[in-house]
Every structure is written in structure tokens, then in C-alpha cells.
Design a protein around this nucleic acid. Structure first.
Lengths: 236, 236
DNA sequence: GCCCGATATTTGTTATAACAAATTACAAAC
DNA sequence: GTTTGTAATTTGTTATAACAAATATCGGGC
């Protein structure tokens, strides 16, 4: 580690920039990150129990960092604790799904409105994602379409350049992860024009109001296939 | 499972309901909760270092649950890690404060709009908080006024009955905690009518649009005293 | 006075062990 | 076959120890 570490005191030497990205990732953070992407990709089914010691064995680490990773996801509500104190993959309630959609309407809408300042290349990249989604629809590759749809929304949020907002929205998507695989259970929407297209066109025209409204339309009209996989709300 | 502990197998016995509130709070959760309210009350100054072992000594617990509590707050971004890996009370950047205000406008605005369905008594309670704030202004008790102002906004959000939204907003307030004590550094605003009053009146009239707009006004025009205590944004 | 370098301490991280509570497994009794 | 009671296992929680890296302390040289 001759030259990289960020905490090294300044030598007179001038270092090229490309030596820096030596990141030291703790064991708990690696486990956290792996579990998180597994959640977002829908690879963990609701009600799955994640027991501490079996998990730490699977990851090849001790209980302490594994517990850290699990509890961090619990604190984000991406996972939950059952009555026994065991970590489980939660099943979203109807109330929660509706609330998440409402919050996403506000936040993703604001991000989209802020994204009109984006350079053309980044809007092109967003469009490229939507083209891939359309291809997945055509080839009936719904698993990939789900992941790309997530990527579309998160990429759009990144264009808004609001890091705090982005993290909130990402948390909401993680929470929906376990049921997201059913996004297309009701079939492929064939709206014309697709809300994603409306978003992209609005961004190109610098029309923030239309961008925001297209996001709202996408959220409100989409995702109907998810409702079959939420639990009824308590006393609702 | 007629009435008692959720995990207890069904005995024929019928238990009164009041035996239930036996809550077992783990050591880490108690430390987490205490630190969190200390943050929200502005009792921890920015750049304060919270070292692991001294902290666990102060709380009279071992390093493991203390580390859990600290890392949980780090994961919520209520605390941060410096280059050494030490936990520190972060200093908000200007960008972040502006972004938090924008997000609060959306979310607290939506909560206020949803709160028009609230029973009259709860709106009265909200008004009572604002009356206390006015009294604090008159008696120059700004420390208490800050806490009550926080309580006003969080109470308003609770009225919206959107638990996920509420938790997000609360997180945003926790992140502002370390600089909130400077809320009145620019003096007491003497707008007429005070936005809080507009909110309360709008709730009573069931006017969701005005409620939302009054929240926006309160956020946009208030809190100018905070800007002197944020660090300049990186390359901003 | 200031700077340098070796030692001692403290730091965050991870592993392991001890503990109580809960769950499971299993065999005896009905 | 079902139930019941006891033992064995597994669970989450907490404490403690070991480790390397970073930091602080302190003395000597200039």
C-alpha cells in the first residue's frame, strides 16, 4: 500500500489520481451490500428467516459483523424482526405499498423535475434503459425487465442530483424488492405513449411539469400486479 | 391466542390486557434511543467524536451493543464516520440543508394535506403546541421554542397517518438536530398570520391545498438562522 | 524554542464464549 | 394416533479478548 490510503500524511510526492480507489470494506459492510442487492433483485422471498449463525456461516464471517449487517437492514426496514427477534424478510402490507407509491410520486417527481438540467448524454443513457425494457417485453424476459425498470427509476433520480432524496427513494425500492418480481403478473402494459417515453421527451424539452406528471402517471398506473402479493392491512 | 403474549401457546386461561406491556428493550436499542433524542434536541455539537469504548463506559454497557447503536445512527446518517472510522456528529452542508428543506416541503406538505381528515381534538392539540411556541417567543425561551417547533412539525406529520412518510421526515429532523439550536439566531419571525396558524386553520376548514401551501411557506421562509452554521458545499 | 523518532496507548474491527430464553426432538403414557 | 413432559439444540444478546492500524506521549537532539 505504498501510495494510496486516504489517511496517509502528505508526502512531497505527487500521486496520480488512479491509485486512490483502494477501498477497505469491512466484513459487515460487504455482507450488508450483498444482502441489499439480493433484496432489491427480489432474490429473497417474503417470510424467509435469516438466522444469525447460519448466515454468518454462509458468508464465512463471524456473528458480530453478520449481526451488524442484518440489523442495519432491519433499521432501514428492508428486513424486519419477528416476535422471536429473528430477522425475516418482511411482507409489505397494502397500506405500506400505497404509501410508498404516494411518497415516490412526490420524490421521484421532484427528482424528474430537477433532472431537466441534465446533459443530453445522460438522458440518452436513460432512454437506452427504456429501450432495453421494451426489448425485454418483446422477448417476455420479465425478470430482466423488472430489474431494468428499477434501474430506470433510480437512474432518473440520480439525474436530479439530490443525494438525500436519492437514498430515500432507493430505500423505498429496496423495501418493495421482495414482491417486485410480480410486477408483470397482470401482463405488460401497452399504454401509448409509455410514461417512460413521456418522461424522456419532457426532460429533453426542459419541461419539468410534464416530467413530474409523467412520473406520477407511471407510478399510479403501473405496478398493479404487486397488489396480489401484499398482506391485508391491519383493520383495513 | 386470546389476549396475552403473542408467542405464548394458547392456554385455556383468559388474561387481562394490561399484562402485555412488558417490553424488553435491548441495551443497544436503549443507547440508540437516548443518543437519538440527544441529537434531535441539539445536545450534541457538530464535529463531536463519539469514541466506542468511552461511550460504552458512559452508558455502562459493553462495546458490542454500543457499537450497534452508533452504527445504526450512522446508517441513518444522523451520525457519520470520519476518515479514521470514528463516529462523529456531522456538520450539515449547505446543499444538504437545501435538499432537506425541499424534501420536507413535499413530504410534510403531503402529510398536512392528508391531515385534514383528523378529529378536531388532535388539531386542537396541534394548536396548543403553537400557543406554547408563541409564549416561548414572548419570554425569549428560544431553546424550548426550538423543541416545540420540532414537535409541531412532527405532530402535524403524525396527523397525516402515513407511518413511512413520518419516519422519513423524522430522520430529516434528526439530521438537522445538531444545528437546530440556531433556528432563532436571526431573531423571531413576526409574520402575520404565522404559517402555523394558516396550517391549523386550513386543517379545520378541510382545505388541503392551503394546508400544503402553508407548510411550504413555513419551510421556505423559516430557518434562515441555520444557514450560518452549515459548511460550504464541496465545489459549490 | 522547534522538530524528530521510539514507545505506549487508544482506536476500530473481528472472533469467540457465556448466558438465558425459546424452540425442537424424542420417548413415554394414555 | 395423540398428547405430554423432559432433554438437547438453537436462538438472540452481551461481554470479553485478540489483532492491526492509528494516535498520542515523551524524551533527546538541534
Amino acid at each position: 500500500m505504498s501510495s494510496a490510503s486516504a489517511s496517509e500524511p502528505q508526502t512531497g510526492e505527487i500521486m496520480p489520481d488512479w491509485v486512490r480507489p483502494i477501498v477497505k470494506e469491512s466484513l459487515s459492510e460487504r455482507a450488508y451490500r450483498e444482502l441489499r442487492v439480493a433484496l432489491m433483485r427480489g432474490q429473497l422471498r417474503p417470510d424467509t428467516r435469516l438466522r444469525l449463525r447460519p448466515m454468518s456461516a454462509r458468508f464465512g464471517i463471524s456473528a458480530t459483523p453478520m449481526r451488524e449487517a442484518l440489523l442495519r437492514l432491519v433499521s432501514e426496514k428492508a428486513l424486519a424482526l419477528d416476535a422471536r427477534g429473528s430477522v425475516v424478510v418482511p411482507r409489505l402490507a397494502l397500506d405500506q405499498l400505497l404509501e410508498i407509491r404516494a411518497i415516490r410520486t412526490d420524490l421521484e417527481g421532484r427528482a424528474a423535475a430537477a433532472a431537466i438540467a441534465s446533459p443530453a448524454g445522460e438522458i440518452d443513457a436513460l432512454e437506452a434503459i427504456h429501450v432495453q425494457i421494451s426489448q425485454c417485453h418483446a422477448s417476455r424476459d420479465f425478470a430482466q425487465a423488472v430489474n431494468l425498470n428499477t434501474e430506470f427509476h433510480l437512474s432518473l433520480c440520480r439525474l436530479g442530483r439530490m443525494p438525500i432524496l436519492y437514498e430515500i427513494v432507493e430505500l423505498l425500492w429496496v423495501r418493495c424488492g421482495p414482491i417486485l418480481s410480480h410486477l408483470y403478473d397482470d401482463g405488460v402494459p401497452d399504454w401509448e405513449p409509455h410514461p417512460h417515453r413521456r418522461i424522456i421527451d419532457a426532460l429533453r424539452r426542459g419541461d419539468s411539469d410534464t416530467a413530474r406528471d409523467a412520473v406520477r402517471e407511471d407510478i399510479e398506473r403501473g405496478g398493479s400486479g404487486l397488489f396480489a402479493h401484499v398482506r391485508p392491512s391491519p383493520a383495513g
